[in-house]
Every structure is written in C-alpha cells, then in structure tokens.
Simulated scan of single mutants.
Amino acid sequence: MTMKNNKYIPINNTRISISELMLPSHANFSGKIHGGYILNLMDQIAFACASKHSATYCVTASVDTVDFLNPIEVGELVTMKASVNYVGRTSMVVGIRVEAQNIQTGKVKHCNSSYFTMVARDESGKGVAVPGLLLQTPVEMRRFLKAAKRLEMKKTRQDEFDSDDFNPTDYLQELTKHNVKIAL
C-alpha cells in the first residue's frame, strides 16, 4: 500500500527511552523479575512512542516476537529503548529493546526485543491517519522493511489457516515433523 502523506517524521523524533530500577516487589516466585511486569513497561513505552509520533491517543493492537533472552535480576537497572519502525495508514509498529544493567559492575545484557503494533484513535475510537516516516539510514530502512515483511507473512498465514476451505489432512506430512500424534 502506497501512502500519499504531506508529513514525514524522522525516526529519531519518535525515539523514547525509560529506565527503572528493579525492586523485590517486581520479582516472580523464582526471584527473577516477572515477565508480566516487563511486558507492562513495554506496553507503556510503546504507547508513549506511538502517541509521540501520531500526536494522538493510541491503543495496542498486537504484540509480536516476545522472546525473553536473559533473566532480569532484582537490583538491576532496566532500560527500554523504543522507536517507530513502520507506519501504515492508522497503525505503527514500535520496536522495543530491553537491556538490564548490573549497576555495581556496569555489565549490560540484552533481555528482550519486541514489536508492538499500535493504532491511533480519535475521541470516538475511530482510526486516525498517522504521519509517514522519514527513513534516513540503512538500519531504518531495514527495520521498516522487516516490519512490512512480518505483516505480510502474518496476513499470508492468516489467509492460509483461517480460510473456510482449510483442510487439516492437507498438512498430515507437515505434522509428522512435530511432536504430535494424530487421532482423527
């Protein structure tokens, strides 16, 4: 989909970062920081980033690729960095990188990278057109294209598996590669 837009915002203008010290109250039963707490913080920064870009209220439409790569410990300083990687007509994909730093040693570890799809809304809840993105670096172009490809693949997957003519027996050979037993 090609958009004609009179306003294009540089990705640098969408960037937001937050840092928060992880407290014992944020820990799960194993003593690590609870993933749900981190997801809550990620949703907040995605909202702030998308709202900054669109200059309007935004809602979370979907969350893709939430891989918890390294555990976060109590006492570490968590920093989240977000920017708009992709825009559609009313939607934006916000890329978020989560890092944790041991404040005593200075060691930083990458804990998570995720993609939140946010949608701009007006006061009545209807979608609002968002400004375009001004891509200024090869990294920005790569991130935009990766987001576009993820959306395209998601649509293809939905079309393939959610159609009325889906027939699971067409996939029996594919299922033999997995840890399943078919009992139809």
Rank of each mutant, 00 (worst) to 15 (best):
V84K: 07
G127M: 04
N70G: 07
N85M: 04
L39D: 05
V87S: 05
M80D: 09
A46W: 08
V93C: 11
E76G: 03
T156Y: 05
M92P: 08
R97V: 08
I33L: 07
T117N: 04
A147L: 03
C49S: 15
K109F: 06
A147W: 01
P71S: 13
I72Y: 07
Q104T: 09
I38K: 08
S124T: 13
R143W: 04
M42Q: 02
D67M: 10
D122C: 02
E123Q: 07
I103P: 11
M42Y: 01
D162W: 08
S124G: 02
L151S: 00
D164V: 06
K81L: 14
L41A: 07
N40D: 12
T56I: 00
S124P: 00
Y37T: 14
Q44A: 15
V139E: 10
I96V: 14
D67F: 10
S54Y: 02
T117M: 06
S114G: 11
L151P: 00
Q158N: 11
G125K: 01
D67H: 12
M118A: 01
A48G: 08
I103F: 03
P71I: 09
T65I: 12
A100Q: 02
F144Y: 14
F144H: 11
E152K: 06
V84H: 07
A46G: 14
V128N: 00
E152Y: 06
R142A: 13
K32Y: 13
R97A: 12
M80T: 08
Y86G: 10
V74C: 10
R121F: 01
D165T: 15
E160A: 11
K146N: 14
L69F: 08
Q104F: 07
I103L: 09
K32T: 13
L151I: 04
Y86N: 14
D43S: 10
L39Q: 15
Q104W: 04
I72C: 07
S25D: 11
F144P: 00
A120M: 00
V63R: 07
T56C: 14
D64Q: 12
K52A: 03
F116V: 05
Q158R: 11
C49K: 02
V130A: 05
E76N: 09
D67N: 13
E152V: 03
A129W: 01
S124R: 10
M118K: 06
M22I: 08
S51W: 01
G36K: 03
F29V: 15
S163G: 11
K126V: 02
G125I: 04
T137F: 04
K109W: 02
S83R: 13
V84T: 12
T137N: 06
D64F: 03
H110C: 06
L77E: 08
F29G: 15
V93K: 10
D64E: 13
G75Q: 09
Q101R: 14
Y37D: 11
N102R: 06
D64M: 06
S114A: 13
I45Y: 09
F161T: 02
N112E: 00
K32P: 04
T79K: 13
D162K: 12
Y115D: 00
P24A: 11
E99C: 08
D162S: 12
D67E: 08
Q104M: 12
E160L: 15
K155R: 12
